[in-house]
């Protein structure tokens, strides 16, 4: 390795550390400080406000539902993409990436156009059968599913490719049928990638804002998620409450980061 000269090294170090400090570290630190400015009152006030509690509960519910759906869908699609051949496979593998580069607002609009009860392509039919999607929990789940869709797939596909299918073939030759092979051989081998994908999806689902905002009518206590209530509280000059909810969301993210950091080496062993 060719070493850089000392002044260059220090300059580069200063740029890197300075940039990250002013852009990320200090602002996040300030948030935490402001949350605890009056001791624990911000947090306790927020956690005794029934609207905040129901927003947090809704976020939890929506995130868990979306993660479960994406887990099943993601593992299925990954298996199909890596282990099978079918027409349109290349197109599908490109399409599952699309949600990563679509604006959340556009995601929301797309869902509204199809599922709104007034003139949506499918929404009117569903509404006639008493099912509301937009401005209701199903819409929140769909919006969240959409934005987090590729995360599990992106973790699982490389690992599936890497482990190859010889172990699966060996299992087949030893008498295991397809489901037995999947549960006993494939799933244990991709376990950490799946867990990793789930953690990423969870963090993304908990934090989704734009797409959710479009499909929610933002009614406190009913369709207002935690991220929506951060905005609402801040705009209503309830800054302490906004900080408290934001702090709780940050904690979820920090926990995800820690889990991911702990899993990282295992994924590659």
């Amino acid at each position: 390795m060719v070493s850089t000269s000392t002044p260059t090294k220090w300059a580069l170090r200063a740029v890197a550390v300075g940039y990250v400090f002013f852009l990320v570290a200090w602002p996040v630190g300030l948030l935490i400080r402001r949350t605890f400015e009056g001791g624990l009152t911000n947090l306790t006030d927020a956690l005794t406000d029934s609207n905040v509690v129901s927003a947090l509960a809704l976020t939890g519910k929506v995130a868990v539902a979306a993660v479960l759906i994406n887990l099943v869908f993601g593992v299925t699609i990954s298996m199909l993409l890596v282990r099978y051949d079918f027409p349109g496979k290349r197109v599908l593998s490109a399409l599952v990436d699309v949600p990563l580069s679509v604006s959340p607002v556009v995601v929301g609009l797309a869902l509204v156009l199809v599922y709104n009860g007034r003139d949506g392509w499918l929404g009117t039919g569903l509404e006639d059968n008493g099912i509301s999607v937009i401005f209701a929990t199903p819409g929140l789940v769909m919006a969240t599913c959409f934005v987090a869709l590729p995360l599990v797939i992106r973790e699982v596909v490389p690992v599936l490719t890497e482990i190859g299918d010889e172990q699966e073939q060996a299992a087949r030759s030893l008498g295991a049928n397809a489901p037995q092979t999947f549960w006993r051989i494939t799933l244990p081998s991709i376990k950490w990638a799946v867990v990793y994908g789930v953690v990423l999806s969870l963090a993304r689902s908990v934090g989704e804002f734009g797409a959710v905002k479009v499909v929610s009518d933002n009614v406190a206590g009913k369709t207002q998620t935690a991220t929506l209530s951060v905005e609402k509280s801040y705009q209503n000059f309830a800054q302490g409450e906004a900080y408290a909810i934001a702090f709780l969301l940050v904690m979820v993210c920090v926990a995800s980061l820690i889990v991911v950091a702990l899993l990282r080496p295992k994924v590659h062993d």
Binding site: P27, V28, L30, L31, P104, A203, V206, G207, E208, F209, G210, T227, V230, E231, Y234, A242, Y243, A246, L249, V250, C253, V254, S256, L257
Partner: peptide
């Protein structure tokens, strides 16, 4: 990556 975007703005 991990921070909810609205929280990023607040921060």
């Amino acid at each position: 990556f991990a921070l909810p975007t609205v929280v990023a703005g607040l921060v």
